[in-house]
Write a protein that binds this DNA or RNA. Structure first.
Length: 935
RNA sequence: GCGGACGUGGCGGAACCGGUAGACGCAACAGACUUAAAAUCUGUCGGGAGCAAUCCCGUGGGGGUUCGAGUCCCCCCGUCCGCACCA
């Protein structure tokens, strides 16, 4: 018997599958379909081990469902627009398209090597004009249907690079490249009206349409949509001092009108019109506002910032009494939520409390917690946000918080100061991006006609091939010719929209395009009606909100415009964990592939210290204004943790970047990269350059979990890589790669082969369709059928790690029953091969062929467990005395409770423990446990 | 800061609806085979006490509910994901 050789077997079976067209999907109304889709990858360069895990999971499902008789669609494509290609263009001068398509070629090859059951004939990339032209067509329809509009919104503006920055490009409020302090700037941009669907998007989370989704994702979406009922009301200015245009006072929104008596100030957003009004004549306020806007646009940065305010020279009255409330411009109030103004109730909101303490404002308590004493209850450091009884609140006194909300709204409505409203946290979807590498938005700006759509006959609006990426900013905007176009309405001179779509638009409908990827309409309705919705969607939890919500919204727009018939795109959702391992960046802050990084030898370390270190230190100088040490080509480095590691690695003392105390980590090591670029080669006079390693998880520091799926596949085969990725960790949890684990997978592959290969032809030699098998082999047969039932159940529930553990147990049982008869062994080995097939498909084909199975194992029907063989005759129960396990009891599976109780009480160990005590109670849980309570 | 998750041996993890904690794998150790190594096979493997039978402790920490808690509740600590222009 020969050793299993994946290097021969894997390409061989991949070729057979292709020849047989085994995974090419054809719509067939007579067959029940099953659409398996993993979130498509961004072509970053190479397949990451995390991709392998993701696609291996989908592949298990796809192969399993095919074996179960479904007509399976399992396609693959590329989420190919995005910033990395443009950044690469800026760095290396290669065109984004060249970079992207060459990455796709590499990654396609790597994925094919993994033996995935993908219908490659449906492949496309979102940057193909053949794809994005349809996106443009749909957008025209959405626009016509009133789903798209333009409005002003804020962007991060880098004043030095003269460009819009993504949130991730803003580090500590500064531009990643220029280091300049970022400003918030308004631009007129395209939006899609996702808020129109807020209610339906929310309802579907609970009405059964998304039953196949995990609860936590539904909860996250519910919170994100953030429906709240509240009160929008006017606070009138005291003393009739209303500035021009603000005669009605300030409109605020609150979800807690029950706490109106607890109000001690009004706060408005820095970009609120009233703030702008006062800033005109108050330079200090203007400075304060500019300062607030320097936080950038990310909600996270705004919320984390220290709460600050600037008092305006006017006050409001209070609707219910004669109090006067100061008005502040406050950095934590968001203009885009509610009305951009709030009333502060410090006793009931931690933010408001912090603010009130800082500015010495009163803190009247108005909600009395259930067991508190109204005479002595005060707020100290913590606001009380829970339910309770209203007090110190005039006509609301004695009401519960809920009743008081209703009463306060009714009163304000009576007074004509406002009304109860439903509010959503969800904002409309801004789809404009000021970048080159995206789908052009098909609009034309004409001075006479305004903004007009590009006529459908003129689609696609293709990106210009030539573009200048040498400087930051939007290459479309400064392209010499591309944007100049005649107005389709009046024929006069006009200019193209130079914004491109957010890449979330590309990924919001690709799943529908897969139904008929070559069709000349965006979506071929018959095909889409057959294949949609996706039966099983698989992707990372990091997409729980944005991508999944946008795709759900897009599906609604597509239905409204007649493109498809489904309500929801994804019937079942599974969110897998990530594969974590250390990340590397070179001294310029560029990502380095783990496989290009090696731990240096002692000699290399010496060279590093003596040769590289002085070079790097020469690049360090003292930043003048802050007196901090900064790496010259690193000001500021985009990532604080890298800055810290740089310091540790290169031995710089003091602070790097913005002042924050650095904790030196003694484990810090110097890592070397073997793929230096020209600039680095020159700088270091070496092909080997230092890189900075920082672990995603602290625990992984000691582990050299640097890994390339390709290398694994070369050494052990794709099956071993797939098997290991699914074996140890539960799929929804993060996993860390270890080298030793894959060797275990490789061992198992050989064990399966060693079990099967001596039994060559066994499936031909016995007839499994007729009953057979000796009574002596019952134990093996029970194990075979228990394994079939268990693995099936585990796959159905995405418990791949458990399915794999069962296969290991089955292997152990097979060894124990090595002398069983041919019939039972044929049954066992056949089942083993089929159960392993979704995980290790190449090995399974090889085994199937050896055993003499009919056709390809990927076409063979899934084995069925015989219920008669799943029943156990006897069970072993644990026996507890006062909750502590004291013994074990084997009883017939159908023994009655009284008999079990008697047996338990007569157990020697039990007798010892109840000796001298009185038995008070005996709890018998059939099939599980006996607990004797004795005192 | 807000929202969501997670935390179990040396390691990855298992434990169904609250019912024998540690399945299965990795690593380690001991033995067999071998001139030797690798591979393979057999066995041991949470901590402590004991010759042993056996007993005590143990699921991030602290409380609680229960005949019984890794699992449920409250508080705390730590890690990860998302926060609308990363994809």
């Amino acid at each position: 018997m020969g050793r299993y050789n994946p290097k021969d077997a894997e390409p061989k079976w991949q070729a057979r599958w292709t020849e047989a067209g085994a995974f090419e999907a054809k719509a067939d109304a007579n067959k029940e379909k099953y659409y398996v889709l993993e979130m498509f990858p961004y072509p970053s360069g190479r397949i990451h081990i995390g991709h392998v895990r993701n696609y291996a999971m989908g592949d298990v499902i796809a192969r399993y469902k095919k074996a179960c008789g479904f007509n399976v669609l399992h396609p693959m494509g590329w989420d190919a627009f995005g910033m990395p290609a443009e950044n690469a263009a800026m760095q290396t001068g290669s065109h984004p398209a060249t970079w992207t398509y060459s990455n796709i070629d590499i990654m396609r090859g790597q994925l094919k090597q993994m033996g995935l059951s993908i219908d490659w004939s449906r492949e496309f990339a979102t940057c193909d004009p053949e794809y994005y032209q349809h996106q443009q067509k749909m957008f025209l329809d959405f626009w016509e249907a009133g789903f798209a509009y333009r409005k002003e919104s804020s962007v991060n503006w880098d004043p030095v690079d003269q460009t819009v920055l993504a949130n991730e490009q803003v580090i500590d409020g500064k531009g990643w490249r220029s280091g300049a302090v970022v400003e918030r700037r308004k631009l007129s941009q395209w939006f899609l009206k996702i808020t129109d669907e807020a209610e339906d998007l929310l309802e579907a989370l609970d009405d059964g349409r998304l039953e196949g989704w995990p609860d936590n994702v539904r909860l996250m979406q519910r919170n994100w949509i953030g429906k709240s009922k509240g009160l929008a009301m006017q606070f009138r200015f005291a003393d009739a001092t209303a500035p021009d245009g603000f005669e009605d006072g300030i409109e605020i929104f609150t979800t807690r009108p029950d706490t109106l008596y607890g109000a001690s100030f009004i706060a408005i957003a820095p970009d609120h019109p009233l703030a702008a009004h006062f800033a005109q004549n108050d330079p200090a306020l203007a400075d304060f506002i500019i300062d607030c806007l320097k936080l950038g646009t990310s909600e996270e940065a705004i919320e984390k910032a220290e709460k600050r305010g600037y008092k305006l020279p006017l006050e409001t009255g209070h609707p219910f009494d004669d109090r006067r409330l100061p008005i502040y411009v406050a950095n934590f109030v968001l203009m885009q939520y509610g009305t951009g103004a709030i009333f502060g109730c410090p006793s009931g909101d931690q933010r408001d409390l912090d603010f009130a303490r800082k500015y010495g404002l009163p803190v009247p308590p108005v909600v009395l917690p259930p067991d508190a004493d109204p005479a002595s209850f005060t707020i100290e450091d913590d606001a009380y946000v829970g339910p309770g009884t209203i007090f110190n609140s005039g006509f609301l006194n004695g009401l519960s918080t809920d009743d008081a909300i209703a009463a306060a709204i009714a009163k304000i409505e009576d007074m004509g100061l406002g009304q109860g409203v439903t509010q959503y946290r969800l904002r409309d979807w801004g789809v404009s991006r000021q970048r080159y590498w995206g789908c052009p938005i098909p609009a034309i700006h004409c001075e006479k006609c305004g903004i007009v759509p590009v006529p459908a006959k003129d689609l696609p609006v293709k990106l210009p091939e030539e573009a200048d990426f040498s400087v930051p900013g939007n290459p479309l905007e400064r392209h010499p010719t591309w944007k100049h176009v005649d107005c389709p309405a009046c024929g006069g001179k006009a200019r193209r929209e130079t914004d491109t779509f957010d890449t979330f638009v590309d990924s919001s409908w690709y799943f529908a395009r897969f139904a008929a990827p070559a069709d000349d309409k965006p979506i071929e309705k018959a095909a889409a009606d057959y294949w949609m919705p996706v039966d099983q969607y698989i992707g990372g939890i990091e997409h729980a909100i944005l991508h999944l919500l946008y795709a759900r919204y897009f599906t609604r727009m597509m239905k409204a415009c007649g493109y498809s018939s489904v309500d929801e795109p994804f019937e079942n959702l599974f969110t897998q964990g990530m594969v974590v391992h250390a990340v590397y960046k070179d001294v310029d802050g560029n990502w380095i592939f783990p496989e290009d990084v090696a731990e240096p030898t002692e000699e290399e370390r010496t060279v590093f210290r003596e040769k590289f270190l002085p070079l790097v230190q020469a690049e360090i100088y003292c930043a003048q204004e802050t007196n901090e040490l900064v790496l010259a080509h690193q000001i500021p480095h985009p990532d604080q943790s890298v800055r810290i590691e740089l310091e540790n690695t290169f031995g710089v003392s003091g602070h790097i970047g913005r002042a924050s105390p650095i904790s030196l980590s003694p484990e810090s090591q110097n890592w070397l990269c073997t793929s230096a670029n020209d600039k680095q080669r020159q700088m270091f006079e070496s092909d080997v350059v230092p890189v900075v390693r920082y672990p995603i998880e602290k625990m992984s520091k000691s582990k050299k979990n640097v890994v390339s799926p390709e290398a694994i596949a070369e050494t052990y085969g794709a099956d071993a890589a797939r098997w290991f990725m699914l074996s140890d960790s539960p799929p929804e949890r993060d996993v860390e790669w270890t080298d030793s684990g894959v060797e275990g997978a490789w061992k198992l592959i050989n064990r399966i082969w060693d079990a099967v290969s001596p039994a060559a032809g066994l499936l031909k030699a016995v007839d499994l369709s007729k009953s057979g098998g000796d009574d002596a082999d019952k134990e093996l047969r029970q194990m075979t059928h228990a394994t079939i039932a268990g693995v099936t159940d585990d796959i159905d529930n995405f418990r791949f790690n458990k399915a794999i553990a069962r296969i290991y147990e089955f292997m152990n049982a097979l060894k124990k029953h090595g002398s069983a008869g041919d019939w039972a062994r044929a049954e066992a080995l056949g089942a083993l091969t089929q159960l392993a097939a979704p995980f290790t498909p190449h090995l399974a084909e090889e085994c199937w062929e050896t055993l003499g199975g009919e056709g390809l194992v990927c076409d063979a029907p899934w084995p069925k467990a015989d219920p008669a063989l799943l029943k156990k005759d006897s069970v072993v129960l644990g026996v507890q005395v006062n909750g502590k396990r004291r013994g074990e009891l084997e009883v017939a599976a159908d023994a009655d409770n009284a008999a079990v109780e008697q047996a338990a009480l007569s157990d020697e160990a039990v007798k010892r423990h109840i000796d001298g005590k009185t038995v008070r109670k005996v709890v018998v849980v059939p099939g599980r446990i006996v607990n004797i309570v004795a005192t």
